[in-house]
Nucleic acid binder design. Structure first.
Lengths: 200, 200
DNA sequence: CCACATCTGTAGTGAACACTACATATCTGG
DNA sequence: CCAGATATGTAGTGTTCACTACAGATGTGG
């Protein structure tokens, strides 16, 4: 029993291209024709490899969050809650306006509202965003235990807040906000975390 | 020359229904069939009255921003920048989780990314959000002139920040965040404005 | 009551969509 | 070199989409 004809394209490279299409047009706005052209393959190859359009999105999201996870690890490695927030939001200001990628964040651009048959796409994105939020929350819990954050502060609320600002910045970026505008937002946003810090 | 058969439906009532469909499913996710059913009319009536799908969206946005404008006037009527931010964000926490409406904000849910042929829909939404931001900015400029905000603070940046938080809260609401979670975000967010206030 | 103008419901239109049948090509194991 | 297995390219499939032709209904002005 042979192992069959080998795949002629690299799945990760193809996923990078698919990611960009979803990022720019959203899940519903991206067509199979656009995706296959960007990936340099034909529809049967796409379906054989990823199942269907939603399967392709999930694979692209896996790849996106994996790359993003590496960066988040660096973010939460900062020594104070304030610096965590600053690294995160300033980094996002830069990443979301990096001309190498579409503006904004795939986890937002992918699809906030979807039509019949794609109702779970927004939830899929939301659950990925929640992972980031959980990572932030855990870091802020530690900051509170260390006395970095005030004893009255709520780490979960702070994490939700930073996450919300990040999402808002993503939407602004996708509608044309430039890097400087996003940095200003980040700069103001950090002050709320600073107000929760013991040495604010 | 007669004036023709009169319209049998009320345009504003029909727009309220269309607004809800766009709000829940987004521009691309909403189908003409869903829209006409919700509006209680047939496609020819829709096209005769609103031109096309995008014309219907714009009419719905006009109605949405008109209603929202009344509320924004109350928000900026607050006596300090801090209270403006608090009224705005706390109000948004409540409105975006009001069971009478779909969760989130139409100006975000409507469509952040769109496919070929609808590229200007996201810009249309962004320009409406910018109107809110401008109103906030003008209010913060006044606050600075009055000595309410510090002389070092940037009213435009503050307005962008509050606007970004509002958008982020909208996305969170649409993906299931409850009222209490949004209020916590608002509560933290206000502290950044407080930090820019002279009597913080 | 008639000419004219506008609305309404039925029943479609062509185009674009996600997805696939099928023949062919390219591999492995024996 | 052959049999089995998987990938590929061509060329579709049925469905759903936004949108509309058309005939009949309902109004106004003369």
């Amino acid at each position: 029993m042979g192992m069959g004809r080998p795949r002629e394209f690299d799945a990760d490279t193809a996923l990078d291209q698919a990611m960009e299409v979803f990022w720019r047009h959203g899940y519903e706005g991206a067509t199979i024709a656009q995706l296959t052209e960007a990936m340099g393959i034909n529809p049967p190859s796409l379906y054989a490899c990823f199942g269907n359009k939603e399967g392709l999105l999930k694979a692209a999201l896996d790849r996106y969050t994996k790359l993003r996870g590496v960066w988040m690890d660096e973010v939460v490695a900062a020594s104070t809650a304030r610096e965590v927030a600053e690294r995160m939001l300033m980094g996002i200001a830069d990443k979301q306006t990096d001309p190498a990628n579409p503006p904004g964040c795939l986890l937002v651009q992918g699809g906030i509202a979807c039509g019949t048959g794609s109702e779970n796409v927004p939830f899929e994105l939301a659950s990925r965003r929640a992972q980031n939020e959980d990572q932030l929350r855990d870091r802020f819990i530690r900051a509170k235990a260390e006395g970095d954050l005030k004893r009255t502060s709520d780490p979960a609320a702070l994490a939700r807040y930073v996450s919300a600002v990040a999402v808002g910045m993503g939407v602004m970026a996708s509608s044309g906000a430039d890097r400087e505008a996003l940095r200003q937002v980040a700069s103001v946003a950090v002050q709320a975390v600073e107000a929760q810090s013991e040495r604010g």
